[in-house]
Nucleic acid binder design. Structure first.
Lengths: 369, 369
DNA sequence: GTCTGGCACTCTCTTTTCAAGAGTGCTAAA
DNA sequence: TTTAGCACTCTTGAAAAGAGAGTGCCAGAC
């Protein structure tokens, strides 16, 4: 009976999605006619809705309820129907200004990106720190005295990765002592990877008596190896997330608005919490996003993880290609303001890329407000 | 009629609280007799319960429901009835071991403390980073080249406070250049506070032509001033928290178990989230805990903040007296396993104190596993 | 052939009612 | 002072009934 996705059906599909995203209520034929001043009757719209349902773009919760988009419906909307907008210029300017205020602090960039994404998309956000695709390579170490028997070791790796650790000294050391030791180790370990460092250590330990390094130097070497190990071990796992409150303010999590068993809303809340805290359900998506260009949109059941069936994820890679890259994005119920969320993810990822590029090549500049 | 808190009434109060903490259900007279093999009849217990209610230690939700402790009841329990236990030795050992594995990393200590507290108390936890009571005093700066036009500035302050920031260079600088500049600034700023640094900067700017510092040096000075300013500004506010999931797994937040309108459970959940994220309701408690010795227990309405009426907070100061101190603790529904939570807070705070002391005086050692 | 008005039908949602159950409070007796 | 007995209160759950929302379909109009 249905002769495919006619123009009018596409228009109606778009309206249904807009309406549903806005109100979180199943959309009735009469509402569409009244609110959008369609000059056809509700009955006509009903026929079209039935056709759209048969084509798989909409569903019915029960016989006498309005229509709700399916994952396929959202997908078609995102691919073909959606207005491709950007964040407004004042908004962009405000965001740039916020980043400008924390210039120089990578950790703060990450936090800020998470918070801005959450606010603009009114959903949860995830950001992974930028990582190098290569294995970690040592660059140099600085030892700074904190007091007589305590020093701070600042380890710098290629790609601008920095890690600091305190270090209990076995004996009192003068600043000169520290400097000498740091210089020695920096030159010995320069450009080495974790495996090389470990080899060096075991080799040194075997030739007991005529050891190449002093006790103190070996202590620092050990620290370096441990730090590199710890760093590589957690490289994949770390996901910063924010916007829990924003997401949980969505009607899906408020029983009075979701018109359903409050029990289910609570259960959903708990599971959402779990997803964000553990990063489960995102695990596969992130490497995938790291390997793709542009903004990725994963809608509901398109995600293989079953617990994500009711959520959409919008991700984009950011960083400097072939150097360091990370992933950032938004996560929320499938009923999501896709145009706005996508614009936001796109803008923040390009902004973060600019910031990182500045860290890597001085010929790119942070846009100033 | 009631002749005060007799021995037997105290016993019964203790049992009511233990039972209620365990089951989260109002406690009935018959349950007490059956479960704890009291050799009196339920009717006798009922009389005593009525007396305890008149004295203010228990309440009734409605005529035909069991008894529930009041804040006053919990308070009496904590002061007089509670068994004063410690964490078991195996548990202590396991915790120490976990801290041992992240030795040298203050940030990790804080995270770990939060996670351990949450797990042992099955509630949310809060930890503030250790802060000095004095104003921040500069110690030294190191400049580490990241690449040609980018350096990392590591600022070290008195009290072991360290902050790192990247710095875009105005021109290519050799490592020697950087070292010289860092040494110069370190010696000029040594032991200065924020105000002094700012004075120095304005004084230098006024004498235009014959400036005391080079462009590059002034750039670094500026960075230092900004960093100190930012650091002092956020010194009070930063509260790390964990254990949201643990707390939200308490029956109070699960409508099916709380036997009440699910709506209310959801509302409660949302508010709890807000408290943890914003730190509101804790604001007054933390300075208070910083000024007190030992473990502080604030039960329900004892907290002036109204949104905390249903929550208890257990806090302890940690750190090195007169040097750096922070606060850590547990937050959860008033129906809380006080003995265990208090032991846990006490143990972790003393452990963290030991760790920090090690950072300050070498004559104290981290207990090794 | 497409659109529209009308109307029956379905399902939800809310309210009411009723019975069962849990636990207390009180009284009177041991 | 303790206890048994019993009436009373309040909750909880199930079932029933009525209102409302929205669809699906048919028959007629354009």
């Amino acid at each position: 009976m249905s002769s495919g996705l006619t123009e009018r059906r596409q228009t109606i599909l778009k309206l249904v999605i807009q309406e549903f995203v806005e109100t979180a209520q199943p959309v009735a034929s009469e509402t569409l006619v009244r609110k959008y001043r369609l000059n056809v009757s509700p009955a006509t719209v009903r026929n079209e809705l039935a056709a759209l349902e048969e084509l798989g773009y909409l569903t019915h919760l029960h016989t006498s309820a309005g229509r709700v988009p399916t994952d396929i419906g959202y997908r078609f909307f995102v691919e073909n129907l959606m207005d491709r907008t950007s964040l407004s210029l004042p908004e962009q300017r405000m965001i740039r200004h916020q980043f400008y205020q924390v210039r120089g602090e990578l950790d703060q960039w990450i936090q800020l990106a998470g918070s801005v994404l959450a606010r603009t998309a009114q959903n949860a956000s995830v950001v992974t720190p930028p990582r190098s695709a290569d294995r970690l390579r040592f660059r140099q170490v600085e030892l700074v005295a904190i007091h007589d028997t305590m020093a701070l070791a600042v380890l710098v790796f290629h790609g601008g990765v920095v890690k600091q650790q305190t270090l209990a000294l076995d004996a009192v050391r003068s600043p000169d002592d520290l400097r000498r030791c740091a210089a020695r180790i920096s030159s010995v370990l320069a450009d080495l990877e974790l495996g090389d460092v470990e080899d060096l250590l075991t080799r040194d330990q075997q030739q007991e008596g005529s050891a190449e390094f002093g006790d103190f130097e070996r202590q620092v070497l050990d620290l370096v190896a441990r730090a590199m190990d710890a760093f590589e071990a957690q490289a994949q796992e770390q996901i910063y997330s924010d916007g829990l409150i924003e997401m949980l303010s969505q009607p899906e999590f408020i029983p009075a608005l979701a018109r359903e068993d409050a029990e289910r809303a609570v259960e959903r809340m708990r599971r959402a919490l779990d997803i964000l805290k553990s990063g489960r359900g995102l695990g596969l998506l992130i490497p995938q996003a790291l390997a793709s260009d542009g903004v990725q949109v994963i809608i509901g059941g398109e995600n293989s993880a079953d617990e994500m069936r009711e959520y959409s994820v919008i991700l984009a890679r950011y960083g400097v290609e072939r150097a360091v890259t990370g992933v950032l994005g938004v996560i929320g119920p499938t009923r999501m303001a896709y145009p706005r969320s996508i614009s936001s993810v796109r803008y923040i990822s390009s902004l973060m890329s600019d910031l990182l590029a500045e860290l890597y090549q001085a010929d790119q500049r942070l846009p100033e407000s």
